[in-house]
Amino acid sequence: MKAKPSLALRIAAIAGIAFLHFPLLIILLYAFTTEDRTYQFPPPGLTLKWFGVAFARQDMWAALGLSLRVALVATAVALVLGTMVAGAMYRFNFLGKDVVTLSLILPIALPGILTGIALLTTINRLGLEPSFWTIVIGHATFCMVTVYNNVVARFRRLTPSQIEASMDLGADGFQTFRYVILPGIATALLAGGMLAFALSFDEVIVTTFTAGQDKTLPIWFLSELFKPRERPVTNVVAIFVTAVTFVPILLAQRLTQSGEELHGGGKTT
């Protein structure tokens, strides 16, 4: 291949990346506009007042609190269950392994709306009320897949002889888990956990169905989109949400070094 790319290729690649990033910059700009009813461009003036307005909104804080609690619990459940499957899939060969793989692919292969409505009809049929816990159940399901993908990729790099060496030197199964396996997969657990957290924090499609009257931050955000007034407040929250999800993602990328395990990683909406 030639040492230098053609100009056309370079322009096409850069334009494509710009297309991916330009809209987010505009969101940032509109958080400062003085016009609060339309998306007039260029903004007639710039102001900082929307930050104050946004932070004074009680309903926003309530939604944020709910989102954080849901994300924490869903991530915790997903970490335990996802690591268990990953361990089983790594350590054992068994009949029906393909079925397990399939059931872990389904939540990311099928559109999220299916998960949402399926859970809702089931919740209704069982006569349950949508609540904090129904949100958590929905989130934990796809977060589990994310954790599984991260941890199983790391397991594959852990040589089986390390585990054998530990047992050989007198450590029983639990000691081996604590001193050899856990340190080996720690960063993958952390990365998987952070991605799961970001995923849950941002989820709207499934949540719409399982939340009932509760409002997570994305649902609050969605309802704000259809309100004609104080539009820049939405932008302030959008920046905030973006920042909150970026931090764990960047950290997770650091932890997995190449970031190859982040590939999709179960992120579909």
Partner: peptide, 26 residues
Amino acid sequence: MLVLLPLWSSYLVRVYAGRLILAQEG
């Protein structure tokens, strides 16, 4: 990272961004 960040950043925020730049007076 430039490809990965949009993938992992908030879906809803990105949808909103799309609507925002396409708006009539946008």
